[in-house]
Nucleic acid binder design. Sequence first.
DNA 1: AGGCCCTGAGACAGCGCTACCTTAGTGGCC
DNA 2: GGCCACTAAGGTAGCGCTGTCTCAGGGCCT
Lengths: 339, 339
Amino acid sequence: MTRTGSRTTGRPTLAEVAKLSGVSPITASRALRGVSTVAPELVEKVRAAAATLGYIANPAARALASARSHSVVVLIPSLSNHLFIDTLEAIHEVMRPRGLEVLIGNYHYDAAEEENLIRNYLAYQPCGMLLTGFERSEASLQMLAASGVPCVHMMELGGSADALSVGFSQFEAGRAAARHLLGRGRRRLAFIAAQLDRRVMQRAEGFRQGLAEAGLSAPELELLAPEPSSIALGGALFSQLLAQADDVDGIFFCNDDLAQGAVLQALRQGIAVPERVAMVGFNDLPGSAHMVPRLTSIRTPRAAVGRAAAQALLTQLDGKRVAVSQQDLGFELMVRESS
Amino acid sequence: MTRTGSRTTGRPTLAEVAKLSGVSPITASRALRGVSTVAPELVEKVRAAAATLGYIANPAARALASARSHSVVVLIPSLSNHLFIDTLEAIHEVMRPRGLEVLIGNYHYDAAEEENLIRNYLAYQPCGMLLTGFERSEASLQMLAASGVPCVHMMELGGSADALSVGFSQFEAGRAAARHLLGRGRRRLAFIAAQLDRRVMQRAEGFRQGLAEAGLSAPELELLAPEPSSIALGGALFSQLLAQADDVDGIFFCNDDLAQGAVLQALRQGIAVPERVAMVGFNDLPGSAHMVPRLTSIRTPRAAVGRAAAQALLTQLDGKRVAVSQQDLGFELMVRESS
DNA sequence: AGGCCCTGAGACAGCGCTACCTTAGTGGCC
DNA sequence: GGCCACTAAGGTAGCGCTGTCTCAGGGCCT
C-alpha cells in the first residue's frame, strides 16, 4: 500500500493500459503518441483505457528511451523586466497544448551563468531551445552547436545564415525615437540607458544614426549606466543629466522603467514635461500610459515574439522548413503626452 | 558521427566515468552523489574523471531508476505580479546550489488550471512542491496527499496541523493599514481591491476589524473587483469611488499597482494626496517609493518567504524535522508621503 | 584465537518507455 | 495465380542510472 521501499512509482504504467485495452504496449504507446500506423478503433480503445486508469506517461522513462525529452528550454536574461514575462507567457500558451514542458533559465545578464544553464539544461535533452539574442560565450555557442538542439533566437534579428530569429530591428527603433523627437523640434537630444546589453547598444546606434541624419551628434548627452535599469535609477540619471547639461530638450530612454523614474523625478523637481524636455521610453511597459504626463514609448511586440518563436520551433520539430528565417515583427511608436 | 538514428545521447555516461577512474559504475554513482560509504580517495578519482569527460548525469535515467526526480515544483497564481517574481528568484537561489531543478507552474488564479498543473507535474515525480496559499480544489488536495510529495505553503499561514507554511498574517497586515490611517485622523476609510483571492479577502477582514475596533464600519466604501489588478484598474476604481462617496479621506489598496494607478489618477484630477485623501498600498512594489507623492505601503517579505519555504523543503528532504511548522515572517509598514 | 559486526566495494536487476526489426496480412500488378 | 510492395501489429532489447543484495576484509570483543 505504501510507496516507501518500493522502486516503482505506484502510478499506472503503459503496460497496464495496454492490458486493459487488449493490445501490446508498443501499440498503446503509438496510439497515445498519435503515431499514424495505428487503426483508429484501437486508438480509441487505448485512449479510453488510459483515461480510465488516469494514465500519464512517465516523462523520465520516455526521455530515457527516446533520448529526447518533451521539454523546451527558454533562456532569458532577466525576470524583473516585465518585458520577458509577456514573452514567457506567450511561449507557454503555444507549448502547453502540445504537451511540451517549458524550462525557464534566467541568467541575470551574465554570460557565464548562461553557459552553466546551457550545460545543465542540455543534459535534459530538450527538443528545442529559445534564446534571447545572439550574444553569448564561445563555449555556449559550441555546446549548442554540438548538441544539435534546434534553436530560435528572440528579440534580435540576424545571426548566421541558417539561424532562426524572431524579433524586430533594435537599430530602427532607436532611429525612430530620434526622428520622433527631431520632428517635435527638439535639437539637444540625450540618450539615457542602463543594463547595457547588445540590444540596448543597437538602439543607441540607431538613435545616433537618427541624429546624424539631421546633422547632429551629442556624445556628451549619452548617459550609459551598466547597472540594471530601474525606476530609481531613471530618476537619478535624469537629475544627473540636467545638472550637467541643462539645455537638453529631449531624452530617449532605453527602457520604460528609466523613463518612468525620470517623469516622476521631473514632476518632483517641477520640470515641465514635455515643454522643457520631451521624453520617449522603450517597451511600453504597463505603467507608462498612466504616468503624468503619459509617456510616449516604443511598444515592442514581446508577446508576439514569444508566440512566433515558439511556433517557429514547433515547425522545425515537425520537420518542416520555417518560411522566414528572420521574422521581423516591427514595433510601434505610441505617441503620448510626454513628447 | 551524426546523432540521427542513434538511440544513445552521445554524451559521456556513468560507465565511462567508472572505467576511466577504475571503479565500478555503482561506486562512481555513489561517489558523485556524495553517498558516504565511498573512500575519499576514490571520490576524488571519480570526480576528476567526471570533470575530464565533462560528465553530467542524465536526469531522465536518474529519475527513472530512483523513481524520483531532482526537481521541485513551484506553483504560483501569477507571473505579472512582481511579488511572485521576487519569491521565485529567492527559491532559485536556494535550490540551484543543491542541484535541484525548479519547475514553475503559473495557474493564473484558476483552480482548474492549478489542478491540471498538479496532475502533470506529479508525473515528473518532483522531490517537493512549493504551493501558494491553502486554497485549492478538492481533487488537487487529494492528488497531493496521495502522491506523498512533501509540500510547503507560501504567503499564508495556517492549514492543517501537519502542513508547513511560510508567510505572514494577511489579516494583521490589513488591520495595520486600518490602524495607520486611523492614526492619521482619517475616519471615512475605503478598501479597494481586485483579483479577490483568499489572501486579499483576509486583508479585507483585517481592515474591517481595524475599523471595528475604532467603532467604525463602512461596507459602502469597499470596492471589490474580481478582475486582475493593474495600474489602469486602480485609476478607474479610484475615480469611481470618489464619484460615489466624495467624503472618503483614506483608502487602503490590496495591491500597489492599484494604489499607483490611484495616485496617478489623483494627480491628474488635481485631488490632493494625502491632504484630501490618504492612501496606503500593499506589497511595496518597485515603483511605489517613487510615486508623487511617495506611496505608503505594506512591505511584504516575499523574497524571504521564497527563501524560507525552499529551505524548509530542503530540511524535510534531508529527513530532518522543520522546527516551526508555521513560519511568520511579518511585514513592515513603510510610511511615506501618501499618508 | 575465533567469531562477529561493520565498512567499503561490486553484481545484479529493473525502473517505464520507445527504436528497431520482424512478422502477418492485404491488395495490386504483371 | 504468384510475386512483391506496403501496411498494421508485436517481439526484443536497451536507454543510463540506482535500489537492493551480496561479498570481502579488517578491527574488536569475548
